[in-house]
Computed example of a mutant assay.
Amino acid sequence: MNLIPEPSVERLLSLTRLLDHLDVQFITSSEIESRTGWSSNTIRKDISYIEGSFASPVGYDRQKLATAIKSTLGLDKVQRFCVVGLGRLGSAYLHYSVFREEGYELVAGFDSSVNRIEILHSPVPLYPAYKMGEVISRFQITLALLCVPPEEAQKTAERLVTAGIKGIINFAPVVLQVPEGVHVRNVNVVDELRAISATIQCS
């Protein structure tokens, strides 16, 4: 696959969600522009990264384009992931059924507290944190939701990387240091509130 710039990946991901919820056979770049606010030129450039034949004189074949984007971005394969840190946030994700519908299989939860593991009711197996390396390797888990306190985040991320994790969704309000080849997405609700507040203030 050709290297796709991160902003293009973000837009293509949003585009697949849009395409999946439309009930039309064809859609033009102008119609996508009116629904997303992206320019037609930007849309066409993003789609140029996708291999396949889905353009026609009346627009893009919606289903073929969505399928091609998912294939190019690896979204057509089931991805296994784990949750690390089973406090209120982490334990809530254990019961989030949408993951499987979107092609992600939650196969394990980890926590440093054995007592917490014993009392939690979970549809997936739970393990003490010291078993992360063994379990991640055994089930070939590549992604992790990191839901630990800030003071534990860096150390836990290092253990995940050592175990073979390639992508981390970090909910702790800290900047993680990870080696090249490991990708981190930071999710901070306060930052999002600040961003949208600033946008409202400046618009």
Results as ranks from 00 to 15, higher is better:
32 I>E: 03
34 S>G: 04
34 S>W: 02
35 R>E: 13
36 T>A: 09
36 T>W: 06
37 G>A: 07
38 W>T: 09
39 S>R: 10
39 S>L: 10
40 S>N: 14
41 N>E: 14
42 T>C: 12
42 T>M: 11
44 R>W: 03
45 K>E: 08
46 D>T: 06
47 I>N: 03
48 S>D: 12
48 S>V: 09
48 S>G: 05
51 E>Y: 07
51 E>C: 04
51 E>A: 14
52 G>M: 03
52 G>D: 10
53 S>H: 14
54 F>E: 02
55 A>I: 12
55 A>G: 12
58 V>H: 11
59 G>D: 06
60 Y>T: 10
60 Y>M: 14
60 Y>C: 10
61 D>T: 05
61 D>Y: 08
62 R>C: 13
64 K>H: 03
64 K>C: 00
66 A>S: 15
66 A>F: 04
67 T>V: 11
69 I>T: 03
69 I>S: 03
70 K>M: 10
72 T>H: 06
72 T>Q: 14
73 L>I: 03
73 L>K: 00
74 G>P: 02
74 G>V: 09
74 G>W: 03
75 L>T: 01
75 L>Q: 06
75 L>W: 04
77 K>A: 11
77 K>H: 11
78 V>Q: 12
78 V>H: 03
80 R>P: 02
83 V>K: 01
85 G>H: 01
85 G>F: 00
85 G>Y: 00
87 G>N: 00
88 R>G: 07
89 L>W: 06
92 A>T: 15
92 A>V: 05
92 A>F: 14
93 Y>V: 02
95 H>P: 00
97 S>A: 15
100 R>S: 13
101 E>G: 13
101 E>Y: 07
101 E>N: 13
102 E>M: 14
102 E>H: 08
104 Y>Q: 00
104 Y>M: 05
105 E>W: 03
105 E>A: 08
105 E>N: 08
108 A>Y: 08
109 G>V: 10
109 G>K: 07
110 F>I: 09
111 D>N: 05
112 S>M: 10
114 V>I: 15
115 N>S: 15
115 N>M: 13
116 R>S: 06
117 I>A: 05
117 I>T: 06
118 E>L: 11
121 H>K: 15
122 S>N: 01
123 P>G: 04
124 V>H: 06
126 L>R: 01
127 Y>G: 02
129 A>V: 08
130 Y>M: 09
132 M>I: 15
132 M>L: 08
132 M>V: 11
132 M>N: 04
133 G>A: 09
134 E>A: 13
134 E>V: 14
135 V>D: 03
136 I>Q: 09
137 S>W: 12
138 R>M: 12
140 Q>M: 10
141 I>L: 07
141 I>M: 10
141 I>R: 01
143 L>E: 13
143 L>V: 05
144 A>F: 11
144 A>G: 07
147 C>M: 13
147 C>I: 07
